[in-house]
Design a protein around this nucleic acid. Structure first.
Lengths: 218, 218
DNA sequence: TAGATTGTTAATCGATTAACAATC
DNA sequence: TAGATTGTTAATCGATTAACAATC
């Protein structure tokens, strides 16, 4: 039973299950057991069953889960019904890569607009989407989107976030290495590439048998 | 007391503290309280103190933490002593952005080599680093690195991971939307851009007062 | 000393997982 | 029916946080 509250940890895994289910469907599998889904998703089978139970999604005992039905359920839970529009601010190396990222469109996300402040970039187009000036974000003739990607330098990220919020964006994916402050009701996630490398560096040195460095006093 | 085991959650926050401390140092702050560090890092003050206690790093009661000393301690704990070398495989939109990412070098990570299989790319250079053929990964005249970044399509990511492991790489940052299998002792982290958007989409719809979609049976 | 702030305790909370009754 | 596999329970584990004694 359930459906009320979906734990954060579960929400973070649903997209993984969804991707695996798409692959299973593509290769002609009609049903999948929690054991198989777990193996393909890199998690524990009990965790898969627990996660899915939060959706109120039930499989069939002795059989498993219907691949297509589960796909539908997870998509619905994530709210992936229609194409969600995203906007990207900042067209440096990373912003350009994001604007041209094929994976977004393939999974139902559409780049509705891209913004920068560089006069040399404004007026050109990225993958068919015209580059607008940041000042146009939220302008009446500007595309409406619910998700904004911040790919500007750290020192202007908060200002961009403020403008996004003012423009009605309620979810932000921040690539700038800075902590953003936003009003309640605005969801923020971050992708911090340097942080990832630093964390990897930690686990890597550990596995090498090296001690965690800082020596203890006592 | 401590230093033995550093919890995963703490490891993930140390880079954030480090970044904030660098900013504090740059703006001339000699000491910082857990309250200030927490505020700037977007976390709870008790969590900051608990995290730092795992390093065996002690501040001064009534005063706070010495900014420079804490920077040193966190860097040491993360093993960020000398420049760590990274290699990047895959020079599509994302791979090129990573190869040119200024943030890596600024934080002590050096792009030692980049690889692709496209003959049109092999032999050119990215930001001063020559583009090699993937077959050269692990070759005797190839730069040695401990961290590898995978920026190839999903269907070749596992093969690239295998080659990285064979070449002695012990930490992998995977940008391909696929679950990698690697031997024990190899650390893997992933950056899944589409997953981030899907998770944001979930929290965004929730905050709009919309119900979590899938209706309950009972 | 008085004020400030740490390091640690202990309570709480959320996530994970093995185990198994339910049931297809 | 026998075999398979779910959904759920309950135990365990790890992370968070408030509270406060220790102490600068």
């Amino acid at each position: 039973m359930n459906t009320r509250h979906i734990p954060d940890a579960t929400v973070g895994r649903l997209p993984v299950y969804l991707r695996v289910l798409l692959e299973l469907a593509a290769s002609g599998n009609a049903t999948v057991s929690s054991e198989q889904l777990a193996e393909l998703s890199g998690v524990n089978a009990a965790k898969v069953r627990k996660d899915l139970s939060h959706l109120g999604s039930y499989g069939t005992r002795g059989v498993g889960y219907d691949v297509d039905y589960l796909r539908y359920e997870i998509s619905a839970a994530l709210g992936l019904a229609d194409d969600a529009a995203i906007v990207i601010v900042g067209l440096g190396n990373l912003g350009r890569a994001l604007a041209n990222h094929a994976g977004f469109r393939e999974r139902g996300f559409k780049v509705a607009a891209v913004y920068d402040v560089d006069p040399a970039k404004v007026g050109t187009s990225m993958d068919g989407v015209p580059v607008r000036h940041l000042d146009d974000l939220g302008a009446s003739d500007s595309p409406v989107a619910s998700i904004g990607l911040i790919a500007v330098p750290a020192d202007s990220a908060q200002e961009v976030a403020n403008r996004m919020v003012a423009a009605g964006i309620t979810a932000i994916l921040n690539f700038a290495p800075v902590v953003l402050t936003v009003p309640d009701g605005v969801a923020v996630r971050k992708v911090d590439l340097t942080l990832e490398l630093q964390v990897l560096n930690f686990y890597q040195q550990r596995h090498r048998g090296g001690s965690p460095v800082v020596t203890e006093s006592a």
